[in-house]
């Protein structure tokens, strides 16, 4: 057969191949009874994101009238809100910084709930180079954050400001994935990075160039640091059908939060199912138990009623964003933060 390959045969073969491709297996759109919501969510599922993922991938379909949603994972956090605003997604599990920034730019965003409470990201530093935050700042250390102006970056600026440290001395650089940040720290390329609590646990066992310790725990610095929120747009929320959908999503999230707090074994099984990193999926109790305890108890990452989501609460952190130059502070938070769907969800759950 190979002997007969000449110019004309190649032409014929490739035409045939193209034909087969054109008739290729176009994926059938799936819809099996019930509303299919398009929900945009962060691609990387850390320990703190697991309950939200369960809510989307299992919980919602269990509510009458809903089918499993079309989950739309997105690798870059700020893109999530953009895609909701563009109408590509119905609901977003977006970061609060880009959501509020979009609101300031005139978008009709609505924050309906929390994707998790507080933040699970801590600042881990190479203490061989700088033992304390003050030393790091004075020494002009480098900190990698996922994005300049995002909630982690602003949180850090707030902490520095609170301790009277000059943030302009720090060299902030952008590094997208928390895995990359972790490795950059291990390699001695940067001096400190925000990472998830479970990664902070793991890094202790890794061989790297230095000694790595927790320098900042955000939940000790702020009453509540808002990170990721369940958001949509006012126009989408106009129809009754969509209002009901928003309530359904929040019910599912709340249910998932409560179970995560109450049932370690269940939580562990869900981590094994939905966490992005193999390390985390395969983690044993020695790693996961302390992480779960920190998340559910110390941080209150899975607030059973999302009571923390209030305009007043968010208003408290707005000045930090203003100082960081990430927000102007002209927002009408009472309008943007709409707890009505949350209240309905809580009512229906009790």
């Amino acid at each position: 057969m190979f002997d007969s390959i000449d110019r004309r045969n190649v032409l014929r073969l490739s035409m045939g191949g193209l034909g087969m491709l054109a008739l290729g297996p176009f994926l059938p759109a799936f819809a099996s009874g019930g509303r299919v919501l398009r929900i945009n969510t962060l691609a990387a599922t850390a320990a703190v994101n697991v309950p939200m993922q369960v809510a989307l991938k299992e919980g919602l379909a269990a509510i009458p009238g809903f089918a499993a949603p079309e989950v739309q994972p997105t690798a870059r956090i700020p893109e999530i809100a953009k895609q909701v605003l563009a109408g590509q997604s119905d609901i977003g599990d977006a970061d609060i910084a880009s959501t509020l920034a979009a609101a300031e730019a005139g978008a009709d965003v609505r924050i309906l709930g929390l994707s998790y409470g507080n933040t699970s990201q801590v600042i881990v530093a190479n203490v061989d180079r700088f033992g304390t935050l003050a030393e790091l700042v004075d020494g002009g250390g480098t900190i990698a954050v996922s994005g300049i102006g995002d909630f982690m970056h602003v949180m850090l600026l707030g902490v520095l400001d609170k301790h009277g440290l000059d943030a302009t001395k720090v060299n902030f650089i952008e590094m997208g994935s928390s895995g990359d940040r972790m490795r950059a720290l291990l390699a001695g390329r940067v001096d400190a990075v925000p990472m998830h609590v479970e990664q902070a646990e793991q890094i202790k066992s890794a061989r790297g160039r230095g000694t790595f310790e927790l320098l900042v725990k955000p939940w000790q610095e702020y009453d509540h640091w808002y990170s990721a929120v369940v958001m949509s747009t006012a126009s989408w929320l106009e129809s009754d059908e969509n209002k009901a959908a928003a309530v359904g999503v929040l019910k599912s999230v709340l249910t998932s939060f409560r179970r995560s707090n109450d049932d370690y074994t269940w939580y562990k099984s869900k981590v094994a199912q939905y966490a992005s990193s193999t390390d985390l999926r395969e983690a044993g109790d020695d790693l996961l138990m302390p992480v779960w305890r920190t998340l559910s108890t110390e941080i209150n990452a899975f607030p059973p009623n999302m009571a923390e989501l209030t305009a007043e609460g968010v208003a408290k952190v707005i000045p930090v964003y203003q100082k960081a130059g990430a927000l102007k502070g002209t927002l009408d938070l009472d309008k943007i933060i709409d707890r009505s769907y949350l209240e309905l969800a809580l009512q229906e759950l009790s």
Binding site: A43, A46, S177, S178, G179, D180, M182, S276
Partner: peptide, 15 residues
Amino acid sequence: STGYGGLINDAGLDL
């Protein structure tokens, strides 16, 4: 974060 690119994303999170 789907398909092969998704696998690469996830693998990047491992230690």
